[in-house]
Design a protein around this nucleic acid. Structure first.
Lengths: 116, 116
DNA sequence: GGGGAACGATACGGTAGCGTAACGAAAATC
DNA sequence: GATTTTCGTTACGCTACCGTATCGTTCCCC
Protein backbone atom coordinates (compact mmCIF):
# COMPACT_ATOMS: atom_id res chain seq x y z
CA UNK A 1 0.00 0.00 0.00
CA UNK A 2 2.37 2.66 -1.22
CA UNK A 3 1.81 6.34 -0.86
CA UNK A 4 2.68 7.39 -4.35
CA UNK A 5 1.24 10.70 -5.41
CA UNK A 6 1.85 12.99 -8.29
CA UNK A 7 2.07 16.69 -7.39
CA UNK A 8 -1.34 17.27 -8.91
CA UNK A 9 -2.88 14.37 -7.03
CA UNK A 10 -1.34 15.55 -3.79
CA UNK A 11 -2.81 19.02 -4.14
CA UNK A 12 -6.07 17.54 -5.36
CA UNK A 13 -6.27 15.43 -2.24
CA UNK A 14 -5.61 18.46 -0.05
CA UNK A 15 -8.20 20.38 -1.99
CA UNK A 16 -10.93 17.81 -1.55
CA UNK A 17 -10.28 17.28 2.13
CA UNK A 18 -9.99 20.98 2.91
CA UNK A 19 -13.17 21.68 1.02
CA UNK A 20 -15.07 18.98 2.85
CA UNK A 21 -13.68 20.15 6.16
CA UNK A 22 -14.78 23.74 5.52
CA UNK A 23 -18.20 22.56 4.48
CA UNK A 24 -19.15 20.33 7.31
CA UNK A 25 -17.02 21.02 10.33
CA UNK A 26 -18.31 23.87 12.42
CA UNK A 27 -15.33 23.70 14.71
CA UNK A 28 -12.95 25.41 12.32
CA UNK A 29 -9.65 24.65 14.00
CA UNK A 30 -6.62 26.75 13.22
CA UNK A 31 -3.73 25.15 11.39
CA UNK A 32 -1.76 25.39 14.60
CA UNK A 33 -4.52 23.86 16.64
CA UNK A 34 -4.79 20.96 14.25
CA UNK A 35 -1.05 20.44 14.39
CA UNK A 36 -1.20 20.35 18.17
CA UNK A 37 -4.11 17.93 18.14
CA UNK A 38 -2.35 15.59 15.75
CA UNK A 39 0.83 15.77 17.78
CA UNK A 40 -1.05 14.81 20.93
CA UNK A 41 -2.82 11.88 19.34
CA UNK A 42 -0.11 10.51 17.07
CA UNK A 43 2.97 10.85 19.24
CA UNK A 44 3.30 8.75 22.42
CA UNK A 45 2.68 10.63 25.67
CA UNK A 46 3.46 12.38 27.87
CA UNK A 47 2.79 15.78 26.32
CA UNK A 48 3.50 19.04 28.07
CA UNK A 49 2.90 22.65 27.12
CA UNK A 50 6.58 23.29 26.91
CA UNK A 51 7.23 20.19 24.85
CA UNK A 52 4.51 21.00 22.36
CA UNK A 53 5.72 24.58 22.06
CA UNK A 54 9.21 23.35 21.25
CA UNK A 55 7.99 20.75 18.79
CA UNK A 56 5.84 23.23 16.87
CA UNK A 57 8.27 26.09 17.14
CA UNK A 58 5.79 28.45 18.80
CA UNK A 59 5.55 30.20 22.14
CA UNK A 60 3.95 28.70 25.21
CA UNK A 61 0.91 31.00 25.29
CA UNK A 62 0.00 29.69 21.87
CA UNK A 63 -0.19 26.19 23.30
CA UNK A 64 -2.09 27.31 26.39
CA UNK A 65 -4.65 29.13 24.29
CA UNK A 66 -5.04 26.26 21.87
CA UNK A 67 -5.56 23.86 24.76
CA UNK A 68 -8.13 26.23 26.23
CA UNK A 69 -10.08 26.28 22.99
CA UNK A 70 -9.80 22.59 22.22
CA UNK A 71 -10.54 21.80 25.84
CA UNK A 72 -13.86 23.62 25.55
CA UNK A 73 -14.54 21.61 22.44
CA UNK A 74 -13.84 18.46 24.40
CA UNK A 75 -10.96 17.43 22.17
CA UNK A 76 -8.30 17.36 24.90
CA UNK A 77 -7.94 17.58 28.68
CA UNK A 78 -5.27 18.83 31.02
CA UNK A 79 -4.07 17.44 34.34
CA UNK A 80 -1.39 18.49 36.77
CA UNK A 81 1.58 16.18 36.89
CA UNK A 82 1.80 14.71 40.38
CA UNK A 83 5.49 13.94 40.06
CA UNK A 84 6.36 17.53 39.18
CA UNK A 85 3.47 19.78 39.99
CA UNK A 86 4.79 22.54 37.77
CA UNK A 87 4.02 20.44 34.72
CA UNK A 88 0.68 19.97 33.06
CA UNK A 89 0.08 16.72 31.26
CA UNK A 90 -2.18 16.85 28.22
CA UNK A 91 -4.58 13.94 27.93
CA UNK A 92 -6.58 12.60 25.04
CA UNK A 93 -10.35 12.32 25.06
CA UNK A 94 -12.87 10.09 23.35
CA UNK A 95 -14.24 13.03 21.39
CA UNK A 96 -10.80 13.98 20.23
CA UNK A 97 -10.09 10.45 19.08
CA UNK A 98 -13.38 10.39 17.20
CA UNK A 99 -12.63 13.74 15.60
CA UNK A 100 -9.32 12.53 14.23
CA UNK A 101 -10.79 9.20 13.24
CA UNK A 102 -13.32 11.01 11.08
CA UNK A 103 -10.56 13.15 9.61
CA UNK A 104 -8.58 10.04 8.77
CA UNK A 105 -11.57 8.46 7.11
CA UNK A 106 -12.19 11.62 5.15
CA UNK A 107 -8.64 11.69 3.85
CA UNK A 108 -8.81 8.07 2.80
CA UNK A 109 -12.16 8.49 1.12
CA UNK A 110 -10.94 11.52 -0.82
CA UNK A 111 -7.67 9.84 -1.57
CA UNK A 112 -9.54 6.97 -3.13
CA UNK A 113 -11.81 9.31 -5.07
CA UNK A 114 -8.66 11.00 -6.32
CA UNK A 115 -7.66 7.93 -8.28
CA UNK A 116 -11.01 7.39 -9.97
CA UNK B 1 0.50 5.12 -8.76
CA UNK B 2 -2.35 4.33 -6.39
CA UNK B 3 -3.31 6.44 -3.43
CA UNK B 4 -3.73 3.74 -0.90
CA UNK B 5 -3.43 4.85 2.69
CA UNK B 6 -4.22 3.23 5.98
CA UNK B 7 -6.04 5.48 8.45
CA UNK B 8 -2.90 5.83 10.50
CA UNK B 9 -0.80 6.70 7.49
CA UNK B 10 -3.34 9.24 6.36
CA UNK B 11 -3.31 11.05 9.68
CA UNK B 12 0.45 10.70 9.86
CA UNK B 13 0.76 12.40 6.52
CA UNK B 14 -1.52 15.21 7.63
CA UNK B 15 0.47 15.48 10.83
CA UNK B 16 3.83 15.81 9.10
CA UNK B 17 2.63 18.32 6.56
CA UNK B 18 0.74 20.43 9.08
CA UNK B 19 3.73 20.44 11.38
CA UNK B 20 6.07 21.51 8.63
CA UNK B 21 3.62 24.16 7.50
CA UNK B 22 3.36 25.63 10.99
CA UNK B 23 7.09 25.61 11.37
CA UNK B 24 8.22 27.32 8.25
CA UNK B 25 5.40 29.25 6.71
CA UNK B 26 4.92 32.65 8.22
CA UNK B 27 1.79 33.27 6.19
CA UNK B 28 -0.45 31.12 8.32
CA UNK B 29 -3.48 30.85 6.07
CA UNK B 30 -6.83 29.91 7.48
CA UNK B 31 -8.36 26.60 6.50
CA UNK B 32 -10.92 28.56 4.52
CA UNK B 33 -8.30 30.65 2.82
CA UNK B 34 -6.39 27.56 1.80
CA UNK B 35 -9.55 25.99 0.45
CA UNK B 36 -10.23 29.09 -1.63
CA UNK B 37 -6.67 29.17 -2.91
CA UNK B 38 -6.78 25.52 -3.94
CA UNK B 39 -10.13 26.01 -5.60
CA UNK B 40 -8.77 28.90 -7.65
CA UNK B 41 -5.68 27.04 -8.76
CA UNK B 42 -7.05 23.54 -9.29
CA UNK B 43 -10.40 24.26 -10.88
CA UNK B 44 -10.56 25.82 -14.36
CA UNK B 45 -11.47 29.50 -14.46
CA UNK B 46 -13.34 31.76 -14.39
CA UNK B 47 -13.74 32.20 -10.65
CA UNK B 48 -16.05 34.75 -9.10
CA UNK B 49 -16.76 35.75 -5.51
CA UNK B 50 -20.25 34.37 -5.74
CA UNK B 51 -19.11 31.12 -7.29
CA UNK B 52 -16.46 30.54 -4.66
CA UNK B 53 -18.91 31.34 -1.87
CA UNK B 54 -21.34 28.78 -3.25
CA UNK B 55 -18.68 26.14 -3.74
CA UNK B 56 -17.33 26.48 -0.22
CA UNK B 57 -20.70 26.98 1.41
CA UNK B 58 -19.79 30.31 3.01
CA UNK B 59 -21.02 33.87 2.69
CA UNK B 60 -19.66 36.36 0.19
CA UNK B 61 -17.91 38.60 2.71
CA UNK B 62 -15.81 35.62 3.70
CA UNK B 63 -14.56 35.38 0.14
CA UNK B 64 -13.98 39.10 -0.17
CA UNK B 65 -11.96 39.17 3.02
CA UNK B 66 -9.94 36.12 2.08
CA UNK B 67 -9.16 37.66 -1.30
CA UNK B 68 -8.12 40.88 0.43
CA UNK B 69 -5.69 39.03 2.64
CA UNK B 70 -4.32 36.71 0.00
CA UNK B 71 -4.14 39.61 -2.42
CA UNK B 72 -1.84 41.46 -0.04
CA UNK B 73 0.25 38.32 0.17
CA UNK B 74 0.44 38.29 -3.62
CA UNK B 75 -1.23 34.91 -3.91
CA UNK B 76 -4.19 36.07 -6.04
CA UNK B 77 -5.43 39.08 -7.99
CA UNK B 78 -8.83 40.50 -8.85
CA UNK B 79 -10.07 42.14 -12.02
CA UNK B 80 -13.41 43.52 -13.09
CA UNK B 81 -15.17 41.49 -15.73
CA UNK B 82 -15.57 43.62 -18.85
CA UNK B 83 -18.47 41.58 -20.17
CA UNK B 84 -20.47 42.03 -16.99
CA UNK B 85 -19.00 44.78 -14.90
CA UNK B 86 -20.78 43.61 -11.79
CA UNK B 87 -18.56 40.57 -11.68
CA UNK B 88 -15.04 40.32 -10.38
CA UNK B 89 -12.79 37.70 -11.90
CA UNK B 90 -10.17 36.16 -9.64
CA UNK B 91 -6.82 35.61 -11.31
CA UNK B 92 -3.86 33.45 -10.40
CA UNK B 93 -0.40 34.84 -9.76
CA UNK B 94 3.12 33.48 -10.07
CA UNK B 95 3.62 33.66 -6.34
CA UNK B 96 0.41 31.78 -5.74
CA UNK B 97 1.42 29.06 -8.13
CA UNK B 98 4.80 28.79 -6.44
CA UNK B 99 3.17 28.62 -3.03
CA UNK B 100 0.98 25.69 -4.02
CA UNK B 101 3.83 24.04 -5.86
CA UNK B 102 5.84 24.04 -2.68
CA UNK B 103 2.87 22.69 -0.77
CA UNK B 104 2.49 19.88 -3.28
CA UNK B 105 6.15 19.02 -3.02
CA UNK B 106 5.91 19.02 0.75
CA UNK B 107 2.97 16.63 0.71
CA UNK B 108 4.78 14.27 -1.63
CA UNK B 109 7.98 14.37 0.37
CA UNK B 110 6.12 13.63 3.60
CA UNK B 111 4.01 11.02 1.90
CA UNK B 112 7.13 9.24 0.81
CA UNK B 113 8.67 9.52 4.27
CA UNK B 114 5.45 8.05 5.61
CA UNK B 115 6.15 4.72 3.93
CA UNK B 116 9.71 4.33 5.13
C1' DG C 1 15.71 27.72 54.10
C1' DG C 2 16.71 31.35 50.76
C1' DG C 3 17.76 32.58 45.84
C1' DG C 4 17.18 31.30 41.45
C1' DA C 5 15.31 28.57 37.62
C1' DA C 6 11.49 26.20 35.32
C1' DC C 7 6.72 25.71 34.14
C1' DG C 8 2.24 27.05 32.82
C1' DA C 9 -1.15 30.71 33.00
C1' DT C 10 -2.54 35.39 32.61
C1' DA C 11 -2.63 40.42 31.18
C1' DC C 12 -2.37 43.68 27.59
C1' DG C 13 -2.74 46.02 23.27
C1' DG C 14 -3.21 44.95 18.63
C1' DT C 15 -4.83 42.49 14.49
C1' DA C 16 -7.82 39.59 11.70
C1' DG C 17 -11.35 36.70 11.34
C1' DC C 18 -16.66 36.07 11.82
C1' DG C 19 -22.04 36.90 10.64
C1' DT C 20 -25.60 40.13 9.69
C1' DA C 21 -27.03 43.94 7.38
C1' DA C 22 -26.77 47.62 4.38
C1' DC C 23 -24.62 49.89 0.32
C1' DG C 24 -23.31 51.48 -4.62
C1' DA C 25 -22.83 50.05 -9.26
C1' DA C 26 -24.28 47.48 -13.06
C1' DA C 27 -27.46 44.59 -15.60
C1' DA C 28 -32.02 42.82 -16.49
C1' DT C 29 -36.91 43.29 -16.67
C1' DC C 30 -41.04 45.38 -17.70
C1' DG D 1 -36.71 54.91 -18.37
C1' DA D 2 -38.18 53.37 -13.74
C1' DT D 3 -38.02 49.21 -10.87
C1' DT D 4 -36.00 45.09 -9.54
C1' DT D 5 -32.40 41.95 -9.28
C1' DT D 6 -27.60 40.72 -9.09
C1' DC D 7 -22.87 41.29 -7.66
C1' DG D 8 -19.14 42.51 -4.82
C1' DT D 9 -17.89 45.49 -1.11
C1' DT D 10 -18.21 47.88 3.17
C1' DA D 11 -19.85 48.81 7.99
C1' DC D 12 -20.69 47.21 12.53
C1' DG D 13 -20.15 44.80 16.75
C1' DC D 14 -18.10 40.70 18.29
C1' DT D 15 -14.90 36.97 19.10
C1' DA D 16 -10.47 34.68 18.92
C1' DC D 17 -5.84 34.63 17.94
C1' DC D 18 -1.22 36.91 18.07
C1' DG D 19 3.44 38.30 20.62
C1' DT D 20 5.53 40.28 24.60
C1' DA D 21 5.82 40.71 29.22
C1' DT D 22 4.67 39.43 33.74
C1' DC D 23 2.79 36.48 37.44
C1' DG D 24 2.20 32.54 40.87
C1' DT D 25 3.62 28.13 41.89
C1' DT D 26 6.75 24.49 42.28
C1' DC D 27 11.14 22.50 42.16
C1' DC D 28 16.18 22.71 42.46
C1' DC D 29 20.50 23.77 44.49
C1' DC D 30 23.76 25.67 47.52
Amino acid sequence: MPVDLTPTQALGLWHEVTLQQVHQDGRDLTLRQLAILLEIYLVPPPHTVRGLAAKLGVTKPVITRALDTMGELGLVTRMRDDRDRRNVVIKRTVDGALYLERLGDLIIARGRAQTL
